[in-house]
Design a protein around this nucleic acid. Structure first.
Lengths: 168, 168
DNA sequence: AAATAGTTAGTGATTGATCAATCACAAATC
DNA sequence: GATTTGTGATTGATCAATCACTAACTATTT
């Protein structure tokens, strides 16, 4: 097992455990158990529990950003927005825990966590806004706002299992 | 000091402490200190820390719901949506902690907390949807979805101190 | 092929601190 | 004297992080 693979495994385990139990309530022992390693071994890869959360959040943002970049590169101007929505819904379905962890982290006050969250939102917004502009969509700022807003309500709809929130 | 006032004070203290520190990390001793009572005394009013969170959430939803009902009763049809937005922004400015606590609770898995959150969203959505319908607004379901979605992005914008998320 | 040395992978045991909740009790008020 | 209001002390459980240690693997020399 290479070191980088082991690190990835720990991050995956942390995403699951933090999302299911809540970051502050979850224990590093639970993460270790999920990753099938000993509890102290986590600290060979991450300086602290908070550093592990940070790494988990970076991984989750990267997935969204990579997915959106792919869509922007390949989608037609007419399909751009619907393809972005579809890409996000796929992530929400396949990596629900990463979204739950992001939702949690929106209210975590630690500076390092706040920074990751802000940078994630900033970058996603920039990708969408630039793509909308280059596609010649009218009122790109307003449309970007609505796109992000629908995404956030979609998260809540999924987290609380309230599909009616997204029904028209 | 009447029992009901004391209870209200504890709830106010809990909202502050839970919002600032995070529900799972915050301690009942911190809530007690904020309420200027002893830590055990909390448990004369609330059976558990979770019951206290539940009461805090109920209070926060009630504020929003009462405010929206007032707007719906008095606003003109043309001003309805802007007045609702204004009412929500006022709450967000004056009771930021209540919104932060709601955001946290969107991902807390305990059944009693989930139930409070679902009921809160359900009721707010119903009030807005009914008001939009009765005001003769076109596509009331779609407009309600957008209204709620913008509200959720507004929460995040405030929580992360990212005003650019709401700029057009 | 065998021995040696060095590096990487991984764990058991511990610790100091922390916390929700209980209980017995005191003080104030009615 | 009885009810209400309120607290000190305690407890059993829990946790992040550290430390000392072992096992396994790799490379080099003999």
């Amino acid at each position: 097992m290479t070191s980088v693979n082991r690190k990835t495994e720990i991050i995956s385990a942390a995403i699951e455990v933090f999302a299911e139990i809540g970051y502050f309530r979850a224990t590093t022992a639970q993460v270790a158990e999920r990753a099938k390693i000993s509890q102290p071994y986590i600290f060979k890869f991450f300086a602290s529990k908070e550093a592990l959360l940070q790494a988990a959040l970076e991984a989750s943002w990267e997935r969204i950003i990579n997915s959106f970049r792919l869509v922007v590169e390949s989608a037609s101007k007419e399909q751009l927005e619907t393809d972005l929505i579809e890409a996000y819904e796929k992530i929400l379905a396949s990596h629900h825990n990463e979204i739950l962890l992001q939702m949690q982290s929106q209210t975590i006050q630690e500076p390092s966590i706040r920074d990751v969250m802000r940078e994630g939102f900033r970058e996603v917004r920039q990708i969408v806004l630039t793509a909308f502009r280059e596609a010649g969509i009218a009122s790109p700022e307003e449309r970007t706002l609505i796109f992000l807003a629908r995404g956030m309500l979609c998260n809540i709809s999924a987290a609380l299992d309230m599909p009616e929130l997204m029904e028209v």
